[in-house]
C-alpha cells in the first residue's frame, strides 16, 4: 500500500516541480519504501510512453505555408 501522504508529492516529482528540499525528502522516503518506489517507476514509465507516442512532427506542407506568411507572400 502506497503512503497516501506522498500522493501529491509524487505527482509533482513526476512533473519535475518539487522543490530541491521536497525532492530530497521524497527520494529519501523512496529509498526505504518499495511501494512508493514502484508507484514512481510506473508513473515515470507511463509519462514517458505518453510522450513518445503523442509527439508528432508538423507536416512539410505546413512548414511551407508558414514560410509563405513569413515572406509576406500569402497565408
Amino acid at each position: 500500500m502506497r503512503c497516501s501522504r506522498e500522493a501529491s508529492n509524487i505527482q509533482d516529482y513526476i512533473s519535475g516541480e518539487l522543490s530541491e528540499e521536497g525532492r530530497r525528502r521524497l527520494e529519501n522516503h523512496l529509498s526505504g519504501c518499495e511501494s512508493c518506489r514502484t508507484c514512481v517507476d510506473g508513473m515515470l514509465l507511463f509519462r514517458s510512453r505518453i510522450r513518445d507516442l503523442m509527439r508528432v512532427s508538423a507536416p512539410p506542407d505546413l512548414r511551407d505555408r508558414i514560410a509563405m506568411i513569413k515572406t509576406g507572400s500569402g497565408r
Binding site: M1, R2, S4, A7, S8, I10, Q11, S35, C36, T38, C39, D41, G42, L45, F46, R49, I50, L53, M54
Partner: peptide, 27 residues
C-alpha cells in the same frame, strides 16, 4: 487520488501494460 496510486504487488504487469499501450489508446 490515492486509488490511482495503489501499487501492484509486482511492477511487471504494469510495465507490460504500459509498453503495450498504443497511440490510439492514449488519444
Amino acid at each position: 487520488d490515492q486509488d490511482g496510486f495503489e501499487s501492484p504487488r509486482s511492477p511487471d504487469p504494469q510495465k507490460s501494460f504500459i509498453a503495450g499501450l498504443m497511440r490510439e489508446d492514449i488519444e
